[in-house]
Amino acid sequence: MRKKLRVAAYAICIRDDQLLLARSPAPTGRGHEWVLPGGGMDHGEHPNDTVVRELEEETGYHIEVTALLGMDTTHRVVPWSYHRKVDHHGVRIVYEAKIVGGELRNEIGGSTDMAAWHPLDDVSGLTRVPLIDIALRLWRERPPVGRLEPAPK
């Protein structure tokens, strides 16, 4: 089975008790879901540069990274091409950032179709990827080693 490693960097941007999110088509092909601005690293790129580039592409904003909040990983076997599967390992680096320039706009021709601010109190009611909740926990708890303990059940 083919093994695939994907490293990506994302940003939590909070301003006036609102969280900046981007919207992406759901993988099921039905509807959309909200995601954190960010994405995959290019070969040779530093993750800090990745999140700055990706956030500008997806939202129009220029950011300054203010903190490294932590990391999360995913590991699963997923369908691939020609009826094969791939052993996928995702490493997701989460930063805190502040907006320092640019203007909110939607991405054109990319993986997202909308960018918007959402009140923090409304985020739990959005159709969203699990990484948003993980990133918000990292932002709130700020674990010293950048790794969350499993959520209480």
Rank of each mutant, 00 (worst) to 15 (best):
R2A: 05
L5S: 01
L5T: 11
R6K: 13
R6I: 15
A9M: 07
Y10I: 05
C13T: 01
C13Y: 00
I14H: 03
D17H: 08
D17S: 06
Q18I: 02
L19N: 01
L21H: 01
L21Y: 00
R23I: 11
S24K: 14
P25E: 09
G29N: 06
R30W: 07
R30D: 03
H32W: 15
E33R: 14
E33H: 13
V35K: 14
L36W: 08
G40D: 02
D42I: 13
D42Y: 12
H43D: 05
H43P: 03
H43F: 14
T50Q: 00
V51T: 12
V51I: 10
V51N: 14
V51W: 08
V52E: 05
R53G: 14
E54G: 06
E57Y: 11
E57T: 09
G60L: 09
H62S: 07
H62F: 06
I63N: 06
I63C: 04
E64A: 07
L69A: 06
G70I: 03
M71L: 07
T73P: 02
T74A: 13
T74G: 13
H75I: 07
H83V: 09
K85S: 12
V86S: 10
V86D: 04
D87C: 05
D87L: 00
H89P: 03
G90Q: 08
V91M: 01
R92C: 08
R92G: 03
R92H: 05
E96T: 05
K98F: 00
I99D: 07
I99N: 07
N106P: 01
N106Q: 12
E107I: 03
I108C: 03
D113G: 14
W117F: 06
L120P: 00
L120H: 10
D122K: 12
V123Q: 11
V123G: 12
S124P: 09
G125L: 10
G125R: 03
T127C: 02
P130I: 09
L131H: 04
D133S: 12
I134V: 12
L138R: 10
W139A: 10
W139P: 03
R140N: 12
P144Q: 12
P144T: 08
G146P: 10
G146N: 13
L148K: 15
E149F: 12
E149H: 14
P150G: 00
P152S: 14
K153P: 14
